[in-house]
Design a protein around this nucleic acid. Structure first.
Lengths: 208, 208
DNA sequence: ACCTGAACACCGTTCAAGT
DNA sequence: ACCTGAACACCGTTCAAGT
């Protein structure tokens, strides 16, 4: 019989608990010991479910990816690709996402899943494999880069205001716009640019 | 008199030594204790030069930025901005760059330096402050995102080959192209796209 | 099958003390 | 001014042992 005061444990349950822990206290708060305590078990019991901490991180990233695919796809609308990219951007708003992604995407099952999904969509749109690869590379760079830079542009712009160059009126206005700009609007502008150049007319970019 | 068997210490000398340590052994190898040993001093002496480890990391990122600006600028060629972006991409080839950038760019002096430099260039090209802010956001997203994804695309594509979807001929060709594509050529395609859309004709993207 | 507890080899950091 | 060494409060992980 399972103890009444806690749900039965599994890799998924533990990974989700770890994500919540980070939501509440930040990435560095997550330690095996604290996670164990939070789940009501000895920290070392976690090694029954995971080989090591990296294995846990991989599972966490995979859970984040799950939440994207399940919730966001309005499949068949003809624009699933764009809405998937928007969902990825939103995924990166989770305080764990960026660190998990850069550290573990190469080893988590989430990595292949993302590439295969995107690649398939691009090929369906009629791109050749070579074009699709180049398009994927540019799109993925923009989306992940945009998401990461979201986290610190505002702080950097704030710090830059103290520099002597910021006495210049245009420069200081530039910095203000950097802080106040609507993230979603800017992201859409980027998607727009990518769609225009890559999908309907990739050849002009491809031809070096 | 300074001991003959080592150069006099300073923040700069120590930060450079830390960068070398990472080049040789990877990011996680860098600990205060190992860095101290490597410099021939007690690890705790490092706290005479740095408030804490984050302070050291900030200094390291600033040193990486230094190497970019000094070496790469063919100023006055009319295309300093593009060559600066290329130099940033090359900076990210240093095994410490990505981790330092994402962790510390918000607090290192390198952050403001980069924003001010880029902003000034964009304004000189005749963009309004609002246009320059949007352009900076998109360019910065692409350049940093491209640099980070360079580190793992190939590994992800390799892993994806094992998935059942990769039995499809087009998909497997797509994955091969992803691994074999010339990084520099793809990066140039991205720069090209940004320059075309943002700098000579930003308005069409800006107008939502 | 699932969990515990002691133990090991590390961390970053503080502080009083040395030259 | 520059450096040391002991000490503190942590880490991740292993392993033999318990139920």
């Amino acid at each position: 019989m399972v103890a009444a005061n806690r749900s039965p444990l599994s890799r998924t349950v533990i990974a989700d608990a770890a994500l919540v822990l980070i939501e509440e206290h930040g990435f560095d708060y997550l330690t095996m010991r604290r996670l164990g305590e939070n789940l009501g078990i000895d920290a070392m019991s976690l090694y029954y479910y995971f080989d090591n901490k990296d294995d846990l991180l991989d599972a966490m990233l995979d859970r984040l990816y799950d939440s994207v695919v399940i919730s966001e796809l309005d499949a068949g609308s003809g624009n699933e690709f764009a809405s998937w990219l928007r969902a990825i951007r939103r995924m990166f708003e989770h305080p764990a996402a960026h660190e998990l992604y850069t550290k573990r995407v190469a080893s988590s099952p989430a990595g292949p899943r993302g590439v295969l999904w995107s690649g398939t969509r691009l090929l369906q749109r009629g791109l050749t494999p070579a074009e699709a690869a180049k398009a994927y590379r540019l799109i993925c760079s923009f989306v992940t880069g945009f998401a990461s830079s979201s986290m610190y542009v505002s702080a950097i712009a704030e710090a830059a205001k103290a520099a002597p160059e910021a006495d210049d009126l245009y420069v200081s206005e530039f910095l203000c716009h950097l802080q106040q700009a609507d993230e979603e609007e800017t992201f859409e502008a980027g998607l727009n640019m990518l769609a225009t150049v890559l999908i309907s007319d990739l050849a002009t970019v491809t031809a070096s």
